[in-house]
Design a protein around this nucleic acid. Sequence first.
DNA 1: GCAAAGACGTA
DNA 2: CGTACGTCTTTGCG
Length: 906
Amino acid sequence: MSDVAKPEIQEADQKTQKMIVIDGHSMAFRAFYALPVESFLTASGQYTNAVHGFISMLLTMIREHHPTYVGVAFDLDTPTFRSQEYDEYKAGRNKTPEEFKGQIDLIRKVLEAMNIPTISMDGYEADDIIATLATIGEAADLKVLVVSGDRDAFQLITEKTTVLYPTKGVSQIPPMDAAAIEKKYFVQPHQYSDLAALVGETADNLPGVPGVGPKTAAKWINLYGGLEGILENVDEIKGKVGDSLREHLDNVKRNRRLNHLLRDLDLPVSLEALELEAPNREAIEEIFDTLEFNSLRKRIWDVFTEPEEEVEEEELPEPQTLTTADEISQWFHTEGSHVIGVHLVTEAPAENNPGMPDDVFALGLASEDQLAYIKLADLDPAADEALASALESASYKKAVHDYKLAYKQLQERGLTLGGVVDDTMISAYLIAPDRRSHALPDVAQHYLKMSLDLSEAESKGELDLGLETKDYSAQATRAAFVVRQLSLMLAGQVSERNAASLLDDLELPLSRVLARMERAGIAIDLPQLEVLNKDFTKVIDDAKSRAFEAIGHEVNLGSPKQLQVVLFEELELPKTKKIKTGYTTDAESLTELYAQTNHPFLGALMDYRDATKLKQTVDGLAKAIADDKRIHTTYGQTIAATGRLSSLNPNLQNIPVRSEEGRRIREIFVAGEGYETLLTADYSQIEMRIMAHLSGDEGLIEAFRSGEDLHRFVGSRVFNVSPDEVTPAMRSKVKAMSYGLAYGLSSFGLSKQLRISVDEARTLQKDYFQRFGGVRDFLRSGVEKARSEGYTETILGRRRYLPDLTSDNRQLREIAERVALNSPIQGSAADVIKLAMLHIQKEFDAQQVKSRMLLQVHDELVFEIAPGELEQIREIVTAKMGDAVEISVPLEVHIGIGKNWNAAGH
DNA sequence: GCAAAGACGTA
DNA sequence: CGTACGTCTTTGCG
C-alpha cells in the first residue's frame, strides 16, 4: 500500500458528485462581520470586506469539495409569504450597516463573472430556494452541501445532505450532519424545526414558549416523537412549562409554519445550469481590478487550474476487528516489527467528574500495512490479558498523539501503555512550539494535508446516543494511521532540530510523571472552602453597598463600560490611560485615582474587584472537585512556547499568594487522607542563576557563590556601598532591574514600575551594567545570534523560531527581540525543573515511597507526604532539584512543610 | 451561541 | 514601552 492516503475523509465513494448551494445573503453578512471593514476600502470609496470574505470562502469550498454543481440563492427585498402571514417577521433587526450596502450587488457581479448562477424568487426566501435545490440534488443522487448561517437549514440534513454552518467567521465552517445535530440539540435533524418552533428564534423575531429552552424542547420531542405528538398530548404536560406551552400554542404553530422550508418551488434554473464551469477570465480581471482584489486573483486561477486529482488514490486497508487473545497476540507479533500507530476512542462517563479521564471504549491500531480495531467490551479475560501485555511491551514500539492523556485513560482500565517511542503532539510542539494548536486534526492537516474529523469519534456520548450502537472502526483506525504517518514524517524534522533527545529523554518520560500527578490530584478542605465563599461574599456585598452610597444609583461594578461612564462622565475624575473602548479602569489606574481624589466610590470598587476575583477563584475550585474530594488539574505540555508547562481546568498555577486574603485560598489545599503533610520545594531565583550561568558574568556568579542575599549583593555593587549599607529602597531598585532584565524591560518601563524618572532609571541601568556588563553583552549577543540563526535555544537545546526578528515592522521586530531575550532564560528554567521532576520520580520509584508529587508551579513543586517519610522525601527532593543540571552557580532549593499549601509555603 | 475585550491571578 | 500563561465577566454581534 502507498503511504499517501486520500485527502478527503468524506469521499468514501469517489463517484458521488457534489452540489453546493449557498445562502448568499447570510454568508455575505457573516463575511462582513468576520473581516475588518476599514481594511477593505477601495480608492473609489467602496467597502469590499463582505465581497472579499464571501469569494474567499467560496473558493475554499470549491477547492476542498470539487463540486459538480454550484448555486447561490439570494433573498429579494420584496415581501415574502412569511412576512405576509406575520408582519413582525424578522422585524427588530438592526438596519443594515452603511458599509454593507452595495456589497451584495458586487458579490452577484463576481458570481456572474465566475459563471455561477444566482437565484432569487419573488415572494420566497433564499432558504426555500436552497431547500428546493437540495431536494433536486438528492433526487439526482448528489451529495448536497448547504452553506448557510441560518439554523432553519438544519431541517434539510439527511444522509445525502450536510449543512455547513459557520460558527466563527467564514474561514472555518464545520459540517453539521445528523450526528452533529443530535449531539448539539438531542433531536433528529427532521425534528429540528419542531424544536425551533418551541424555543423560538430571536433572529427572526419569532418568540417561542417562555421558559422553554432547547433542553426542554428536546425532552418533549423525544417523549412524543415530535411537535405533532406534543400537540396531541398537550394536556399531559405538567408544571409551569406545561402551562406556558398551552398558553403559547399559537406562537408554536405559527413558528412551525414559518420555519418550514418549501421544497417544491418552480425554480427559474435547471440543474444543468448549475454545473460549475471555469470563470470568465476577462470579466474576472475587470471586476477584480475595480474591487482591487489581488490576492484573490491568484487564488481563483489556482483553484480552477488545479488538476482534477493528481494524487494517486489508494484506499486504506479494510480494518480488521480483533477479538480473541490469539488474534491480538498474532497481530502484534506479525505487525509489531515497525512502529504502530495507536488511537483511543473514548466516551465521557455519565456523571460529571472533573479532571478524571474519559472511559476507553476501543482502540485503533495502524501498522505498516494493516489496520486493526479492538473493542474493549468484546474481549474475554484471555484477550484482555493479551492486549495488556502487548500494550505494555517495550518491544512493540508505538506512536500516539497525546501520550499523557492516553496513558491516563488506559491506566483507569488497568492497562499500561508502554513502548511509546513518539508522541506526535509533542513532536509537533518541539518542531514549532509557537503554533496555536497541536491537536491531531490540525497537525494532520498541516503536515499531511489530511483532514481528520474526530468530532464523532470523540463525541461525549451524551444522552443515550451510546457508542455501543455505532461502529468507530473506520475513524479510529484512520486516526491511528494518521498518527503513524505523522510520526514517520515528524521524526526527520525532530532530529533536524536536534530535538530527539528532548523528546526521548525529557518530554516523553515526563508525560508519565505528569499523568501520575494529574491522577493523584490534591485534596481540598471542603468546610474551609465554604467559609471562604461566605466571607468573600460578605466583602462583596459590603463593597457593593458602599459603592451605591457613594454615587447614589445602581451600577454593574463588573462592567468596565459602565464604570467608565460613572468615573469619567458623572464623577468627572481625571482621565486614565486610553484603551480601545475609552479609558482604562484597571487596578493600577484606580489606585492612582484614589490617591489623587480619595473618592469613596473608588475604594469600594477596588474592594469589590479584589473580593470578586477571590470568590471567582474559590467558586472555580469548588466546581473542579472530583468525586474523590480532590482537584485534578491538567497540565499542558505543548502549550507554552518557551517550554514551560501550563495548568488548566482548573489553573493551579495562578492560585493567589501575594495578598493576605488570597493566601487563605491556599489554606484549602491540604494533605489528603492517609498522608501526613504537604511539602513544597522551590528554586530560589532560578532565572537569575540561569542568566549568571549563560552569561558567565563574573560579578553575578560571585553573587550566587557568596551565599549573600542576591539583591543586597547586587545593590552594594551598583551603589558602591557595603552590603549592610544597602537600604530597602536600593534593594528594591536593583531587584526590579534584575527581574526586568529577563523580560527586556525598557528604562521607560523601569521608571514607571519604580515610580522614578526615566533619567533616574537610565542612570540605574548604566550603573548596573557597569558592574554586570557580562549580562548585558550576553543578552545583546543572544538576540543577534537568534536573528542570524532564526531561533533561540535553551540549555537543553529547545528551540523557538522567531521569524519576526528580521521583520520590517518595528513593532513586531521589537516584540520578537524581547521574546528572544526571555525565551532562553524562561525556557532553560523550565528544562531544569522538568529534569528535576524526572529524577525525583525515578528516585521515588526506586525507593518505593508512598509520598507523591502533586503540583508544579514553574519553579515550585508540591508533594504529599506519607507518614514517616518526611525526611526521606526532603532529602531526595533537595538533592535532585539541587543537581538537576551542572551549571556554574549553585541551584538553591527552599523547602517548606505544613498541613496546607499556605503553611507549607514561605 | 460565540468571540472579543477587559481585567487580573501566578511565575 | 515586560515575558509566559488561564479564567472570568460583560458586551455586542448573530
